[in-house]
Nucleic acid binder design. Structure first.
Lengths: 219, 219
DNA sequence: AAAATATTTGACCATTTGGTCAGGTTATAA
DNA sequence: TTATAACCTGACCAAATGGTCAAATATTTT
C-alpha cells in the first residue's frame, strides 16, 4: 500500500525535467536578485540565497555552479529589462514624447523591479568589475545614439541646449533609479510608509514634468 | 653604538600618544572608507582595511574594536560633510541662489569625497540598518525645513509648482550623487577617461542649469 | 629611575563560507 | 521493463575571516 500511494503521489506531482530546470532556475534567480541587492556580490552568501529560494544550498550549486556565475546570470537578466526600457527612447521622433515615455518606462522599472536596480547600482559602485565589457560596448553604443538624437533636437531648436547631452541622460537615470535604489530612504522620509501605487504615479508625472521643463519643454 | 643610534632614532621620530592615536584613527578611517565603498559592510574585510592603511590587522581592532563600530564611525564622519553642504540651502532667501549653491555644494562633495558617497549609498541600498535612526530624525527634520522653503517659494510664485517638493529634492540628490556613486560608469561613457577638473566644472554648471529650469527659473 | 600607562603585533582560534561529492531519487529513452 | 541520464541533498572540507591575547615596545608620570 505504501508503495502504491508513493507511486501515485509521485506520478501526479511529477514534472518534466525541462520544466523542473526552468522553474528552479527562475526561483533561484529571483532569490539571488534579492540577496545580492541587499548584500552585494561579496556580502551575499549561497546559504542565504538557498534559504530565500527554499532549496538546499547544493541545489544552487547544481544549477549555477559558482556564486560568481549566478551573479553574472542575475546581471544579464536585469539587462534585458533595462534594454527594453531603453528602446522606448528611440521610438519617438518628438522630444516631448521621447522623454515622457522613456522617463515613464524607467520609473515603472524602478517600481516593478527594485532589486534588479539595486544589484546594478551595487555593481557599478563596486567598480563594475563584471560589467565593464557590457558598459563599454552595448551601453556606450546606445548612449551615443541618444546623444545624437538630443543634439539633433537642439540643432532644430526643439529643446534648449544643455551643453553635454550626457548630463541630461545622467539626470534621468539617477532620478528614476533613485526610487528603486534609495527606496528605504524614500520610505523613511514619507513618514515610514511605502509609496502607494497612486502616490507613485503622482511622483512619476512630477519627474516627467521636471525633466521636460529642464530642457525647456512645456509639459 | 647600536644602542645610541637606536635611541637617537627613536627619540627623533617619537610622537606624543595623543598625536599617535589621532593620526592612526585618521589613517584607518580613510582606508576603511575606500574599502567599505568598494565592498560594502559585509563584503569588506578587516585585513583589506589594514592593508590599505598599511597597518597590521590587530591595530585596526585596537583602535576601533569591531568592524561594525569602525563602519559606524565612517558613516558619522561622512554625515558631517553632508550636513555642511545641506546648510548652504537655508543660507539663501532667493530660490535661484539657494538651488545654485546647494547643487554646487553637492557636486563638489561628489568630486571631493566620492568614497563617502558610495558608502552612504551602499548603506541605504542595503536597507539602512545602521542609519535608520539618523534618517528618521536628523535628516527628516532638515528635509521638512527644505520642503517648507520650497512650498513658500511656490506660494510666492517664485518657482513653478512641482507638486511634491520631495520629488525635486530627490532629483537634486540623485543627480549630484550620480557623479560619485556611478563615477566608474561616467568614466566608461566618457571614453574611459576620468572627467578632468575643468570638465567637471562644466557638468556642474549644466546640472545647476537643468535644476533651475526644471522649477521654471531662467539660469 | 622606576612605575604606570598606552601602543604594537605575531600567533592563535572558533566560526563561516564557497564548493565538492557520493549515493540516492526521479523522469525519460530504449 | 530496463538502462540511462538528470535531479537532489546531507555530509564533508579547505580556506578565509572577525576577533582575542600575551608579550614586547614606547611614552608619560611620579
Amino acid at each position: 500500500m505504501g508503495n502504491v500511494m508513493v507511486a501515485a503521489k509521485t506520478r501526479s506531482s511529477s514534472r518534466s525535467k525541462e520544466k523542473i530546470r526552468e522553474e528552479n532556475e527562475r526561483i533561484i534567480l529571483i532569490a539571488a536578485e534579492k540577496v545580492f541587492a541587499k548584500h552585494g556580490l561579496k556580502g551575499a552568501t549561497t546559504k542565504q540565497i538557498a534559504d530565500m529560494a527554499k532549496l538546499p544550498k547544493s541545489n544552487i550549486h547544481y544549477y549555477f555552479h559558482t556564486k560568481l556565475n549566478l551573479y553574472r546570470c542575475v546581471l544579464e537578466s536585469i539587462l534585458v529589462d533595462w534594454m527594453k526600457a531603453a528602446d522606448t527612447f528611440n521610438t519617438f521622433n518628438e522630444p516631448r514624447e521621447a522623454f515622457r515615455y522613456y522617463v515613464g518606462a524607467k520609473m515603472d522599472l524602478s517600481r516593478i523591479r527594485p532589486f534588479g536596480s539595486k544589484v546594478w547600482a551595487n555593481e557599478i559602485i563596486s567598480g563594475a568589475p563584471e560589467m565593464e565589457a557590457i558598459l563599454s560596448s552595448r551601453l556606450k553604443k546606445w548612449v551615443d545614439t541618444c546623444v545624437d538624437s538630443i543634439n539633433t533636437w537642439v540643432e532644430l531648436k526643439k529643446i534648449i541646449n544643455v551643453g553635454d547631452a550626457h548630463t541630461l541622460l545622467y539626470m534621468i537615470w539617477a532620478t528614476t533609479q533613485h526610487y528603486a535604489d534609495f527606496e528605504y530612504q524614500v520610505k523613511i522620509l514619507n513618514n515610514g510608509k511605502r509609496l502607494t501605487d497612486a502616490e507613485f504615479e503622482e511622483k512619476k508625472q512630477q519627474v516627467i514634468d521636471l525633466v521636460l521643463r529642464s530642457v525647456g519643454l512645456n509639459p
